[in-house]
Amino acid sequence: MSWIDICGTEDIPLRGARTLKTALGCVAVFRTAKDEVFAASNTCPHKGGPLSEGIVHGQSVTCPLHNWVFDLNTGQAQGEDGSIATFPVRVEAGRVLIDAAKLLARSAA
């Protein structure tokens, strides 16, 4: 694991998301009502909708294009055959850290 500090929790809107550009494409970093932070692919596997623009509810996000609902813990789409990649993140002293190993790996290879 190699943790990178990407932002403060406050930089992400409550029940909202911001994006992160990576070698694997755009990653969305979500913040729930209870200040939990999740990171997952920003791209809906259905029609490529930007998930960071979706409504964040509970520990889920709804795609803004066609309302696919993803569980942010597993990346699994509810009632659909599809899922998004999720990435390890943790919050320490109000800072959001993401595991860069997985994100940087491919470009290094």
Binding site: I4, D11, I12, A23, V29, A100, L103
Partner: peptide
């Protein structure tokens, strides 16, 4: 708020 948080592609390089 309309910009990405960070650009990790640069760090990777």
């Amino acid at each position: 708020r309309f910009q990405p948080l960070a650009d990790l592609t640069l760090e990777a390089a």
